[in-house]
Design a protein around this nucleic acid. Sequence first.
RNA 1: GGUCUCAUGGUGCAUCGGUUAGCACACGGCCCUUUCAAGGCCGGGAGGGGGGUUCAACUCCCCCUGAGACCGCCA
Length: 493
Amino acid sequence: MTVRLRFAPSPTGSPHIGNIRTAVFDYLYARHCGGDFILRVEDTDRTRYQEGSLEDMMTGLRWMGMQWDEGPDAGGDKGPYFQSQRLELYHKYAKRLLDSGRAYYCYCTKERLEEMRKEQEANHMPPGYDRKCRNLTEEEREAAAKENPNPVIRFAMKREGRTEFDDIVRGHVGFDNELQDDFIIIKADGFPTYHFASIVDDHLMGITHVVRGEEWLSSAPKHLQLYEAMGWEPPVWVHLPLILGTDGKKLSKRSGTSTTFIDYMKSGYLPDAMLNFLATMGWSSGEDRKLFSREELIKDFTLEGITNHPAIFDLAKLNDLQGEYVRMLSVEELADMLEPIMAAAGCVKPVNGDDPREYLLKVTELIQDRIVLLNEAPETANYFYTDDFDYDPKGVRKHFSADHAVALAERLAENLEAVNNWTHDDIEAAVRKSAHDLDLPKDALAIHAARLATTGKTGGPGLFELMLVLGKDVCVKRVRRAGNYCAELAKGE
RNA sequence: GGUCUCAUGGUGCAUCGGUUAGCACACGGCCCUUUCAAGGCCGGGAGGGGGGUUCAACUCCCCCUGAGACCGCCA
């Protein structure tokens, strides 16, 4: 039997990190087993449907290279893959349950249910439907139908015994049947609830392993009983640990951690870094390792490696991985990724008129160790593309306000101007000579000032490397401008 | 309130019935060095509490404590 896993998101909003992590596990295990990875859309709640949600979901999955074998726009012989298009199927099986006495029409109004709930709460009773309609006589049923022509269908849960099952992650778990609710399987609008639709579809689609969040664990008895009532073989259950924030609380937007997957795509994370991160959030290969390529993930991923304690979404860890992946890229690869980002930020034309591609390659090499997110590149490397940058105020105070500042700028400009071969070593010699000419105690003084003059920053790539890329004319021009700036500064004081 | 789940340094993870309890991030120090990174080396720092089982428990069992999830005509 081929292993088949489905990722079944509900199009009710932009995909959450947790949704995608579940998809990662589905995908990885399906690929590990050489099985099928299916995308199914659980759009049974018409009130919560949100335009664009599914598109975001698919964009996110594809971005991480997780292409589904069956699903919307991928075809497959078990479709349709939208639950909203499978209504007849659910009704057919609900009827079967009705006929066998394992389901019943419930005519209770929402108002009555709400009142009941309030009362239960006030009396500290366990909440749940009181099964009023479970054993209606034919007359009662007819009378109730007149009052409420749109009844729901409820599943008749067993009243005695326990429902026990084995979960790959949790082990053997059990629940008392008495405490289970006669839950709704078909809503008044004719749509099925999750509990019912997912079981029918999982069976019909030949799903062998159900991987989902731990929040579903307590409703697993419902699903088990449904399988039993239908006479179907249940799948292997895999309840994933929840994802918590570093504060140990449920992941939330506070503390600067977005829960929206698309945000991470947009802010310049690498798909492979994200995949690596998500896969190791709640899964461990059993060895002390943090880097896993896609191929290694597929090869090593097993259900047994899933941890049973909550997984923490640790942004610092993501950023660490991201940095690793950025550094593993070749300069060409990185440059390819940076190109559109730089372009979007207006960093297109080299300040010195060089060939843009060659220039970008040089710039990329200089910033590769210095960026984490791809989107940081424009800010980190702006001075390679524009003369229009501000001087870092801290740097100004330290380097441009010194007594020797104006004289140094002049020396620097002249010595740089005099360089015939614009090479790393000759640039270095010129800069150091400027310090010597003025009897500065340390060459570093000239170096720092030159950096601030040519880049506006106090940190960054090696000065001589960066000046080499910028070119002589640009450097001289910028040092002169800085000299004027220093002079103005001196006058102002 | 009920049911269910979880519990190793600051954080995230690993191993094991007998180990000097390992790794990564973060942190501190040092090296490299013109800065910022990156890199290298070194360091501090852990098994919630209480009972058992056992020759031996962080590891197995029970209780407590703490944390979380679920109890919708949402998924």
